[in-house]
Structures are given as structure tokens and as C-alpha cells.
Computed example of a mutant assay.
Amino acid sequence: MRVSVIGGGVAGAASAIALRRRTGAEVTVHEAYETVSDQDAAGQVGSFLSLAVNGLRGLDELGCLAAVQAAGFPVADQLMWSASGKLLGRVPRGRLASDTLHSTTLLRGRLVEVLRAEAVRAGARFVTGRRVVPSEAEGDLVVAADGIWSAARTALDPAAPAPEYAGLYSVSGVSHLPDLARGSFHMVFGHRGAFLYIPAPDGTVWWSAQVAAPEPPDPAEVTSGLLEELYRTSRMPLEVLRAATRVDRPTPMHRLAELPVWHDDRTVLIGDAAHPVGAGQGASMAIEDAVALAGAVAASPDVPSALAAYTRLRRPRAARMTRSAASNRDSKTPGTMQRRVNDLLMPFVFRHAYARSTSWLYR
């Protein structure tokens, strides 16, 4: 079997590994950028992500868990804070409390770099420097892993919904605060949006400001001074921002309505092309997709049957994750009254309901 993968990010590289190792297919990955380095093709250096245990177990299925773990660092817990500095809850980060496997945080570019190296090691071939659409791709199977602005999505269905701005934009950066305790991920529910930060082993702090705004910002106007003003009432975010050594460009966050069409007889959407979810699960869900797709191809008599089986398996879980992500996004932009209610209720929720509400994802 010959397979063309469109897009060399997390979803594309993971699917190349899975299809090579599970089915032995001849896999070619088409990457639009000229190189396959983390800087040129994986986004801004410094932006980070966390892989929850569902994504890590997918990597274990692909045979590259250890390599990815070595590229990042483990994070055991997540602490939630109010804007005033009140601790609202402490929960396991991306896992069940009983799970000895801890989530891994790493630079997005490093994850892509490791997965691409593993794909090449598995026997996949990379072709760079030209954008490819499904009709141009050769092979028995075309895997469209071309992200939230997927051209393959509209090629499959011209009436497919388009991404919409979600009312938040994200700004990532790095600060120098060597005295902060390591090992935990922090989320602060600020007055203008959530602020995430995590102390890294090298004494830096990786952070992301998720700012509520009715319209996407002008990148030139989003400065460290503006962020300090937006988070002036939140003690820890303000301290982190004042210690910033780098502030990246803002990235508008988008949502996508559920797609009626995921595949035809040859082409299938995976990762953000099919279901951008956010909530710290984008990469993990893409890895799950790759494992599930390879399993369906290996178990089915032909490609159309495999794509139908893959879609039946993945649609319900992706839809549930999308709903969860929407609730997560809404919790970051409450009004003043709702924020006060949340400060009262969240400690109870995190103590008594959080594990039950997330166990479906990590089992």
C-alpha cells in the first residue's frame, strides 16, 4: 500500500510512524515548508505543550515514548488559582491520581522534531517545499493532517464549516524566575483571561496568557506592557510577566463546528484538520488519531472500509473532547459575578467532581 500524508506536524508525523510500523505501507509525508526543522515548520520556538497520559500511551504504541519524554520534563500536578491568589484546587496533571505515568511538557518544535526523526527511522520519506492537496497526492490512502486551516477539508466538502475566532488570543513567553518550585503546572483565572505558567528545570518559566477579546488583536499592539496592564490584579502572572525575557507574537484561538464529512474513499482528515480541541489535548488527540487510523487500516479489507471504521471509532470521543474544550474555554472568560461564584464553587468541584468528570479521557 502507498500512503501520502499531507502535513508534517504532530498528526502527520505520528500517522507516518503508525502506518509504517503497523501496516508496512510505503509512506511519503508532504511538508509545505522547505525544511523539517522545528523553527521553520513547527511554529515559534518557545511555544510549549503538555502531553497527557492518553497521548503518552499513544506514543508508547508508536515506540517513541522514551524519546519524547527525554525531550521534555514530567509534570505531576496542576494547581488552579483565583486572580486574588487563592488556591482553588490541586489535581493530577493530565492523568488519574492512581497513574504513575506523569504528563510531559516540552516545546512544540521539539515534539515535531522527535516524531519526524522517528518517522524517518521507521522508513517514511519526507518531501518538503510544496503544498499538496488531496487530488495531487499519489497513493491508495491520503492522510490529511494539514491543521486547522486545512485545504483538504474543503476539498472533501466545499460546504465544510470554517474556523471561527473563539474570543481568546494566546501569547506565550519565557521568564527568568529560578526560585520557583518545579514539578507543577499553574493556571490562574484572571480578570481578563487565564494565565498558565510552568517552571522549567533550567530555572526559566514557560507561560501563556490567554486573553479574552471580542476581536483578534493587532500583533503590534500586544506588548509586554499591555499584558502587565491586563493582569495587573493577578499577583503571580504579573510577577512572571515582569520577569519576561521573551514575549512571542499573539495567536488568535479558533473553534470549528463539527464536520459532517471526515473522509471519502481515499482521503481522511486527522488531528486539527478534523477536530481542533485545545484544552491541552490537541497533540494527544492527534496521536490517538494516528494509532486508531493505523489499527483500522491493518484490520480492514480495503481503504474505504478502514476509513469508515476509523471514523466510527473516533467521532464520539472527538465530539466529547470538543464539548469539554468549549467548557474549558468558557471557564477562562467569566464575568465578574460568575468569577465570584466560581471562586466559591471551584474548590468543591476540584475536590469532589474533577476526577470523575475527566476519568473517561485518561482511562
Rank of each mutant, 00 (worst) to 15 (best):
V3H: 04
V5N: 00
V5G: 03
G7L: 06
G8K: 10
S15Q: 03
A25G: 07
A25Y: 04
T28G: 02
H30Y: 07
H30N: 04
E34R: 11
G43W: 11
G43H: 02
L51H: 03
N54I: 13
G58E: 01
E61N: 11
E61H: 08
A67N: 01
A67S: 11
V68C: 12
G72A: 15
K86Y: 09
G89E: 01
P92D: 05
P92G: 02
G94L: 14
L106F: 06
L107V: 15
G109W: 09
E113L: 12
L115E: 11
T128Q: 06
G129P: 04
V132T: 08
V133S: 04
E136Q: 13
G139S: 00
I148R: 05
S150P: 07
S150Q: 10
A152H: 01
L156W: 09
L156V: 03
P158Q: 10
A160T: 00
A160E: 04
P161W: 02
P163D: 00
P163A: 01
Y165L: 00
S175L: 01
D179R: 09
L180Q: 11
G183P: 10
H186P: 05
G190R: 07
Y197F: 14
P201F: 04
T204E: 12
W206I: 11
Q210G: 12
A212R: 12
E215R: 09
P217W: 13
P219W: 12
E221I: 00
E221F: 03
S224Y: 09
L227A: 02
E228D: 15
L238I: 03
V240G: 08
A243L: 06
E258L: 03
H263S: 00
D265W: 15
T267G: 01
T267W: 04
D272H: 08
V277K: 06
A283Q: 02
M285G: 14
A286F: 05
I287R: 03
E288N: 05
A290M: 03
A290I: 11
V297M: 10
A298E: 02
P301I: 12
V303G: 08
P304M: 09
A306W: 09
A308K: 15
A309P: 15
R312C: 15
R315V: 15
A318Y: 11
A319Q: 13
S327F: 12
N328A: 13
P334R: 14
G335L: 11
T336S: 15
R339H: 00
N342G: 07
D343Y: 10
M346E: 12
F348D: 06
F348S: 13
V349N: 12
S357M: 14
